[in-house]
Design a protein around this nucleic acid. Structure first.
Lengths: 240, 240
DNA sequence: GTTTAATGTGTTTCAGGTACATATTTGTAT
DNA sequence: ATACAAATATGTACCTGAAACACATTAAAC
């Protein structure tokens, strides 16, 4: 990856391999934007406007601009579509099958992010955007079902080790709520006592000394994410 | 990722965003090809022929051809450079900073592979290709140091859980050799007894009922990778 | 044959995870 | 007011896997 490109730039006319031969692959980014509502993990989808995929939904994506970093493109999409900046985004995998886009050769890099579906700053402007429960998703446009699966797989792998999950929840939450999110992501039931023990052993939570309100049962304590951790997360993941 | 490209294809003349604006990002693949020799993990590097990086080494990579899958490109590079087909390759991460390539906008997807440095089919033809011990590598061209690190990180994460390591070794190997490879990758010393116990609990190995020869000490038993596992690996990782 | 250096096989200990039970607090219905 | 239902909150016993550690055995080298 250095000799060829030189030739491409300098001898485009004389070489068999011309500039356009190589520079005709488009690069896009697709975001798996996940939220949590009604004890379900949901993903933000948009109706595909390609004839080939009429009636199907697709992930939120866009072509990468020549003057923006790959990562930046994913933040831009998230910002444009949700109005949110302060959100964790992680690159997962790049999909580059020849025939994956009907209009031409497009390779795409998949990112996932978790956000609070009820965040006050959240602006889902377009009415063709919708939150879909992940276990009720059928066919998607392009190879987006594969992309979704790979992101969910990554999420499930990491969610127990790293404090990712809190972006899905409001600022204040109870341990029951937290557990329900884990159960929605992992697709399993967890033992309440063991779950609490495990969480309390990590330094992820801060007891707010407040109680739930307006719940039809005994209210539980409220917690928030450890602010020190929040800072560290920002630094590590370069959240804008 | 669907509306924009439609416009790009259909209304290139009338839209502000022209075809060439988007189709001027080149896509490349870089391979971190790892081998094992003299109790060291080594990576296959090539002298960079870019003036900007004169004197520096770089990973083996190439532009992706418009008519080949992204994954296929990585296999092609491996084949062209080593003569080997039957090798495990895994996509790790895509690097897309604007300024990462001095000659233009190029995003690159990193793959790593492990192979037996003394394999009889191995053909390192070009004399500007060299195996470098990974802990003696200084600056590399482009962002290839970052790419190398991310691949090594992935390798270290997975090597204890998945039977990847065997591609680094000859067909027949002793438990000591196997342990030495693990130690080279992880950069730590392992307890011999615990290591053997751990390995024997997995179904990775088959006892060949043969002994080492020409070793200056008591010879150890020889093992090979469980053939059933080999088949499974081929299926999973689509090794050509 | 004695020494040396590696192979080959336990046992003990400790930490983390899983399974499981009981007391407490609040809301709700009577 | 009282009884009941439902969820919170906390503790213990058991099991599994990892880590620390010791000794007998085999073959090469002298």
């Amino acid at each position: 990856m250095s000799d060829k490109i030189i030739k491409t730039f300098k001898n485009a006319e004389t070489e068999k391999i011309s500039h356009l031969d190589y520079f005709n692959i488009a690069v896009s980014v697709d975001c798996v934007i996940l939220g949590y509502e009604d004890k379900q993990l949901k993903v933000l989808l948009i109706k595909s406007d390609l004839e080939e995929f009429s009636g199907l939904n697709s992930l939120l994506g866009d072509l990468v601009r020549p003057d923006e970093d790959l990562d930046e493109a994913s933040y831009r999409i998230l910002r444009e579509r949700t109005g949110l900046n302060d959100v964790y985004l992680e690159q997962v995998q790049t999909f580059g099958r020849i025939g994956r886009h009907p209009s031409g050769r497009v390779i795409t890099t998949a990112y996932f992010s978790l956000l609070d579906l009820h965040h006050h700053q959240l602006r889902i402007n377009q009415n063709d955007l919708h939150w879909h429960p992940i276990h009720k998703i059928g066919k998607l446009a392009f190879d987006h079902k594969d992309i979704l699966e790979s992101c969910l797989h990554r999420l499930r792998q990491q969610v127990l080790e790293r404090p990712l999950i809190f972006s899905l929840l409001p600022e204040k939450f109870s341990l029951r709520q937290l557990q329900e999110v884990y159960e929605a992501i992992l697709g399993t039931e967890l033992d309440r006592r063991n779950f609490r023990k495990k969480v309390s052993l990590k330094d992820w939570l801060v007891d707010l000394n407040e109680m739930e309100e307006d719940v039809p049962h005994r209210p539980g304590k409220l917690y928030k994410l450890n602010p020190a951790l929040k800072k560290r997360l920002r630094a590590i993941f370069k959240v804008v």
